[in-house]
């Protein structure tokens, strides 16, 4: 690892200021960034730890009934504290990595990183959540811009994520056998106004919405509705752990299972 300066501000404002310098980078839980730095694939001159910022912590409901999660909230906290308000989200959080990773890794870090196999992007896109940053609000549909790319600008911090709470939802994660990240993950959420289906792990472009399934499910929310549907293998990730066709197939299977679980 290369040497860097380390700062641990206690407010978002101070963090933004600290990130204003050249080659400065935010440090959330470090569960992605630290291994990357060990491989010397990242070499920030300054790391700005966000863990000391109280205003970025915690799970609460706002007046609009949205579930608001501070950008620095750990997966473990979400798993625990969102359990009653948004069980599908809590369940997703409780299956990210392992307990020690969940005790450090944060929702903000996960979204900023936008790993194509990460879990949270499916929940955020599948819920139509709003990503709140140090200077604006970004709709989920505008946030994810492809593998490891997001709408975030340099130095912009995710301070909160606001989830509209669906009537029913479920996340199905099919684990890659080695990393245990999602080989494919499907998040299905039914709102009064329609159904959203978000798929992670599968596509080279990262998380995406499966519009065809959304349409079918919006008129008939049951596993039967997606029975005959399939996604194209074009643009799907193909690697040691599964071909594009396999991933495309899993999208169908997992969507059906997520609907069955959510409907049941």
């Amino acid at each position: 690892m290369y040497e860097f300066d380390f700062e641990r501000p206690t407010s978002v404002a101070d963090a933004v200021a600290a990130l204003g310098t050249e080659e400065a980078q935010a440090l959330g839980g470090g569960q992605t960034l630290i291994p990357t730095m060990k491989q010397r694939l990242a070499m920030p001159a300054k790391l700005v730890s966000l863990t000391g910022i109280a205003e970025m912590q915690g799970v609460r409901r706002n007046d609009a009934g949205e579930l608001c999660i501070g950008g620095g909230t750990t997966h473990a906290t979400v798993a625990r504290e969102a359990r009653d308000a948004y069980p599908a989200l809590a369940d997703l959080a409780s299956h990210i990595g392992d307990p020690a990773v969940r005790n450090r890794g944060t929702i903000g870090g996960s979204l900023a990183n936008n790993d194509p196999s990460a879990c949270y992007p499916a929940a955020v896109l599948g819920s139509g959540a709003t990503v709140v940053t140090s200077n604006r609000e970004i709709a989920a549909d505008d946030f994810f811009e492809g593998m490891f790319t997001t709408a975030l600008e340099d130095g912009e911090i995710i301070t909160e994520v606001r989830f509209p709470v669906p009537e029913a939802a479920n996340y199905q994660k099919f684990e890659q056998p080695a990393s245990r990240f999602a080989l494919v993950g499907v998040f299905v959420a039914r709102f009064s106004g329609g159904v959203r289906v978000a798929v992670t792990g599968a596509a080279e472009e990262g998380v995406f919405r499966w519009h065809e399934a959304e349409k079918a499910l919006s008129s008939d929310f049951g596993p039967g509705a997606v029975e005959g549907l399939s996604v194209s293998a074009d643009g799907m990730i193909a690697d040691l752990h599964g071909s594009a066709a396999y991933r495309a197939h899993l999208v169908g299977v997992l969507t059906k299972r997520a609907v069955a679980a959510a409907a049941g």
Binding site: A178, L240, H241
Partner: peptide
């Protein structure tokens, strides 16, 4: 697993699946 150029594809626990 190696690719055809002799690059190790399973170079870490991210791709080499250890029994858990």
């Amino acid at each position: 697993t190696y690719d055809e150029n002799g690059q190790l594809i399973t170079g870490s626990y991210m791709d080499y699946a250890m029994p858990r």
